[in-house]
Write a protein that binds this DNA or RNA. Structure first.
Length: 374
RNA sequence: GCGGCGUUGGUGAAGUGGUUAACACACUGGUUUGUGGCACCAGCAUGCAUGAGUUCGAUCCUCAUACGCCGCC
């Protein structure tokens, strides 16, 4: 069993689709938001807390687990699921994005063979290749592995992007050849930056290699929103209907809606947990900062419409106190809330798709979300 | 009562006879999109105990007053 996508309902007016993914751990509905658990943990949350925010896939990171504790350690411990005691699907990132942020000189350090960069822990020089990335992911034993790609910054020249896209396709092919884990799916990644013809080329060539699902990469690297939305359209257009489409690294609520409208099935993002640790929460009426003095005696919930554990039990005033005193419970409670917020958003999007009212849903959501909260 | 030393923002403090009084913490905002976790960015003393004087110009020099600490009677 690898992974199977089933289209259940397509929105009449957009590319939005409600589907399901059959995994080693059962069937999961899309559109879906995947919380990020980089180092084999969604920062601060237990598996019970994770289960309570909604059913879904979680993401773990190849680069971080390669460094610590090492793929062989996890292999000896019985694989990622057993190691974490997590009985749900796990997707592993390929490490490409970390490489992109750690390399010194992209012209010199990225070669046909792979990418050279320095460890963020101790500066040790490291070299990651498509084969190595897949080999690590095979050992981690995640349910979905990602092809090793280059994620260029924004902006780069057309010529640079062209040769980068071509190399990423060759890397995808090399990775696929060494992929040896028959209960692990392998996804390909579409690159091409903001260049429409390169997105087309990248999508078509990647699809030719026949992966279990496809991802739109190279977004949210500093480009304006309209450029990002166009990147999604330019890539999704050439992807097969019967395979999962994954938009990497996107998790702003409005971006999720825009992605769904353009045919994306799954998303992952550090945003909900990162902003939580810095004291911010998503609410129906916009993002709020719990550090703000105005919440000092505000005994109301973060979001009156939210059904999460945090909103059922704690007030803004208390969470503000935890955040300003740097108590760890604060970041945990906000993480639970923010992840639940995004998962609930995808649940509502599924319903809107079933009712052919995704565009209305977007309009209502944005109208409310853009209003500054009291 | 006498003598010595001191008094800089919410706090700890640096500093200079001459444009915007350093830095840190706290505080007030903002940022964060395939996580280099608890970070980053910005704002925050029209004023240096109070009053008078010297000087072109004083937080800085002089005097007085107040307050604080230390010593002596």
């Amino acid at each position: 069993m690898r992974i199977e996508y089933t289209l259940k309902k397509k929105d009449k007016n957009t590319e939005a689709r409600h589907g399901s993914i059959k995994t080693n751990y059962g069937e999961y509905e899309t559109p879906m938001f995947m919380p990020v658990g980089t180092k084999a943990t969604v920062k601060g949350l237990s598996k019970e807390e994770l289960a309570a925010v909604g059913r879904g896939i979680i993401l773990a990171n190849t680069y971080h687990l390669w460094l610590r504790p090492g793929e062989d350690v996890i292999d000896k411990c019985g694989g990622l699921h057993k190691f974490m005691n997590y009985e749900g699907p796990i997707l592993t990132d390929c490490g490409g994005f970390q490489v992109f942020s750690l390399i010194q000189n992209k012209e010199k350090d990225i070669t046909e063979e792979g990418a050279k960069f320095k460890s963020h822990l101790d500066g040790t020089e490291l070299f990651l290749t498509p084969e190595k990335s897949i080999e690590i992911q095979n050992k981690l034993d995640s349910d979905i592995a990602m092809s090793f790609d280059e994620c260029p910054p924004y902006p780069v020249t057309y010529d640079y992007m062209k040769q980068s896209v071509e190399r990423t396709i060759r890397w995808a092919e090399r990775g696929k050849k060494v992929h040896k884990n028959d209960h692990q799916a392998l996804f390909g990644i579409v690159q091409g930056g903001e260049f429409t013809d390169l997105r087309e080329y990248s999508a078509k060539e990647t699809v030719k290699l026949d992966f279990d699902g496809y991802s739109i990469g190279g977004t949210s690297v500093g480009e304006p929103k309209d450029v990002m939305y166009k990147m999604i359209e330019d890539g999704v257009r050439y992807l097969p209907e019967d395979k999962t489409r994954y938009l990497m690294g996107v998790g702003d609520p409005i971006d999720i809606i825009e992605g769904v409208i353009r045919g994306i099935d799954i998303f992952d993002c550090v945003l909900p947990t990162r902003i939580a640790r810095h004291g911010q929460a998503f609410t129906r009426t916009g993002k709020i900062n719990l550090n703000n003095a105005k919440y000092i005696t505000d005994m109301s919930k973060l979001d009156p419409e939210c059904d999460c554990y945090t909103c059922q039990n704690y007030s803004k005033a208390y969470i503000r106190h935890l955040i300003t005193t740097k108590e760890m419970l604060g970041g945990r409670l906000l993480s639970i809330h923010n992840i639940r917020f995004l998962i609930k958003l995808t649940e509502e999007l599924r319903k809107a798709i079933d009712e052919d009212r995704v565009l209305e849903y977007r309009e209502e959501f944005i109208k409310k979300y853009s209003k500054k909260s009291p």
